[in-house]
Simulated assay, not measured.
Amino acid sequence: MKVTIVDYSSGNISSVVNSFKEVAQNKAKIEITSDLEKIKASDKIVLPGQGSFKSCVDALNKISGLNDALNEFVTVNKKPLLGICVGLQMFADVGYEETETKGLGWISGKVSKIDNQNGKYKLPHIGWNQINILKDSKIFKQVENNSHMYFVHSYEFVPTDKTVISATTNYSTKVVCSVEKENLFGTQFHPEKSDKTGLKIINNFINL
Rank of each mutant, 00 (worst) to 15 (best):
S19G: 13
S55F: 12
E37L: 13
E31R: 01
S19E: 02
V76L: 14
D43I: 12
L60R: 04
D7Q: 13
Q25I: 11
G103I: 08
K113S: 00
Q142L: 08
I84V: 11
N116C: 05
D115N: 15
C85N: 00
I39M: 11
S14D: 05
I131L: 11
G95C: 10
G83A: 08
L60I: 15
D93S: 14
V74H: 06
I63A: 10
A59M: 06
K27P: 00
D35R: 07
S64G: 06
K79F: 10
G109H: 10
H125G: 04
V23W: 09
A69R: 09
H125Y: 14
N132W: 01
D7F: 01
T33A: 03
L104V: 07
G103R: 05
S34H: 09
L81G: 02
S52M: 13
I13W: 02
V86P: 01
L60V: 10
G103E: 06
V6R: 02
K54D: 13
N67G: 13
V57T: 12
E98R: 08
Y121K: 15
N26A: 09
N71Y: 09
I84Q: 04
G51P: 10
S34L: 00
V17E: 12
T99K: 14
F140I: 06
G49V: 07
P80I: 09
F53T: 08
K40T: 12
K29Y: 04
I126V: 15
E97Q: 09
L81A: 00
V57H: 00
V57P: 01
S15M: 01
V23M: 04
N71E: 07
N71V: 06
N118F: 13
P48I: 06
S55N: 15
K138G: 00
G119L: 05
L123H: 10
F91Q: 08
K38A: 14
I114V: 14
K120L: 13
S108D: 15
N71R: 07
S19K: 05
A59I: 03
V76N: 15
G109I: 09
K27D: 11
Y121A: 08
L104Q: 10
K40V: 05
D43W: 10
K135V: 08
K120G: 00
F91E: 07
P124T: 11
W128D: 05
T75F: 05
S64I: 11
D58Y: 04
K40C: 06
N18L: 11
G109T: 11
G119C: 09
N118P: 00
Y121N: 11
I107K: 10
I63L: 13
K44H: 06
K79I: 08
L81V: 14
P80F: 07
A92V: 06
I63G: 07
I45D: 12
S137W: 01
A24E: 04
I5T: 06
C56N: 13
K21A: 02
S34C: 07
S10D: 00
I131E: 05
G103N: 07
G103Y: 06
M90H: 00
A41E: 15
A41L: 13
L60T: 05
E31C: 03
D115K: 13
A69V: 15
G109F: 08
P48K: 13
Q142V: 04
M90R: 01
K21C: 12
V17N: 03
